[in-house]
Design a binder for these strands. Sequence first.
DNA 1: CTGAAAGCGCTTACAG
DNA 2: CTGAAAGCGCTTACAG
Lengths: 363, 363
Amino acid sequence: MTLKEIAKEAGVSPMTVSNVVNRHDSKVSEATRKRVQAVIDKYGYVPNMSARSLSSTRSRIVALVMPVPVSEDQVSQMATIDPALAEAAKNVLTGHYISTMVGFLESKLKNLGYYTMLRSYYRAEEVLELQRNWKMDGCIVLMPQIYDAENRLILTRSSCPVVMLDRFYPDLPMLSVGSDDYHGGYLAAQTCIRYGHRKFAFVCTGAPDMIDQSTIIRERYQGYLAALRDACIPAEDCMVLGFRDSLTGGRSCGRHILSMKPEVRPTALVVTSDSIAIGAVAALKSGGLRVPEDISVIGYDDLPMAALVSPPLTTVSQDLDAKASAAAALLKMRIDDPGMAADRIILDVKVAMRQTVGRAPGT
Amino acid sequence: MTLKEIAKEAGVSPMTVSNVVNRHDSKVSEATRKRVQAVIDKYGYVPNMSARSLSSTRSRIVALVMPVPVSEDQVSQMATIDPALAEAAKNVLTGHYISTMVGFLESKLKNLGYYTMLRSYYRAEEVLELQRNWKMDGCIVLMPQIYDAENRLILTRSSCPVVMLDRFYPDLPMLSVGSDDYHGGYLAAQTCIRYGHRKFAFVCTGAPDMIDQSTIIRERYQGYLAALRDACIPAEDCMVLGFRDSLTGGRSCGRHILSMKPEVRPTALVVTSDSIAIGAVAALKSGGLRVPEDISVIGYDDLPMAALVSPPLTTVSQDLDAKASAAAALLKMRIDDPGMAADRIILDVKVAMRQTVGRAPGT
DNA sequence: CTGAAAGCGCTTACAG
DNA sequence: CTGAAAGCGCTTACAG
């Protein structure tokens, strides 16, 4: 059933049916609208979006794009070198953060009248091509942690509005939604400081040099340092460690802490990931240290499991529902008003106080 | 840049460019192909998929559709009645199983040359409309656990090939991919039986009557019963419990077990979800029972955290990568050969032996 | 408020 | 192997 056929049946022009379908109510008299709508309902007419996209300037499709660490053709050879990385390349939705964000975004976008296309990519070029393939109305980039060059290409060469999550380039006009990682890092350290801690380890994902590579980690680290400074704790007394962002990585972290002499061992771990924090707590416990009596740990993300592990993990928590809402709303504003200025939304974070942070030993 | 402009530039007809773009190599001489390709590369020409969809019979889009438990307009009122349900309706990707499957599927579909559209739905009608909106090449239904009537509508009225995951209707010609839940239930019970257990509780998600409502749960239960039968354990000696599928639901389960008199308490819990199993273990431990010395627990799904909780959870494990591959491949086969017969793929499961199943007390 | 015409950028037969 | 014509099902100006 096509627009034309509906028009014929209702005794009006295709244009009028189009106006009814698109709810341009001011352009159609109420009587005509009802008559046409009746015919539409009778035949269960559904518009052809391809035709609509082709003849108009928009598609109503928003792309949710996510980088993969390894290209498709490299996956098999990578499997022998770094199996975990190869696995990650086969599935971009294994993490709690990204899958939750995608779920919320689909819901928000649907409510705003958009279709959601999901796409993993290795090169920015793939994203740009996708946008042009479908005349995308908009594009949301998730987890653009690593590839700065690719991110910049997407931002500068995009053929549609882009909202980038968790990443901001001051020198580029862009739309971004992030959370206040600086404040998160500050709060994490401050929470421990209030319990008397003065010997810290900052534990981040990846190698310790991630602090230089990832904006997120850097912000958290800067916030953490600021809290130390405000409490007159010399940063030299504290260490920075890096482990793979997984429960297993966390266990390595815990074992590493256990291997240290008690006199140099930190009394508080400020960790940039709950997975690592939880893994670390487990390893510390099985190594004979009590959490939080002997050592305190604070995580980041507030994973669902954070509240259940034993002891329940104290962690920095962000509102992913609000983040997705903000991203979708920002994108829609930009789509509706192409002249809109660059904008950056930063959502606040809070500490979910639970039981892995306690009084520093001997205080 | 359009096909036509490329054609003009290359001095050929649009049709020839089309044949080059679509790699109909037999229809173009190698010399022409090269010349045209050079122009395509020079201008970075990208085909317009809307135009292609409109003029051809296919769109290359596959829809990944997932039911939500509450319709959009009911969410706010539902929030007061059942907050957890309202939350679930706002995000279909909170569970590990579904988000992992979506991640794998996107990757497989991309490799097969399809675009992935993600969509949550409350009524089958939404899915049918979406299919027609975009002339979908195919559709994969995830987690169709609950709404049989809606599932049947999708299967019978779909305008494109459909693969349904984890659900099969013997009376309908359909394509389905599932895992061997019967065998999973059997293996779970058998594992405990081998450790001398004879007093069981079967713990499922939702109310105990889920066994009648969900094919998956029913299959697992039947397999479980078969294992009891094979070991000459009267099913009357065993109980069936139901809890919400979450860590919190699992804690309720654990507390319920703790409230029972030791003489009637089961010595082994066969649980249809790792979340419940892990929550239950945590509650049992804090209630003073030792796992597995006093009570054994076996879960289902092999969540990433299952291996890390303490003690590591013994659980039934399925290969989600293989499942996604099978679903994507099956769908492609059906798209390429519309006359293909109905088919059902059932993947096997295995037990991940860890430390929550041990000798039955007093054996 | 309503309509006739043109066109969006491809592909599908049909010729040659 | 290559091309000219028609058409997919809408929307966008432009008239009236």
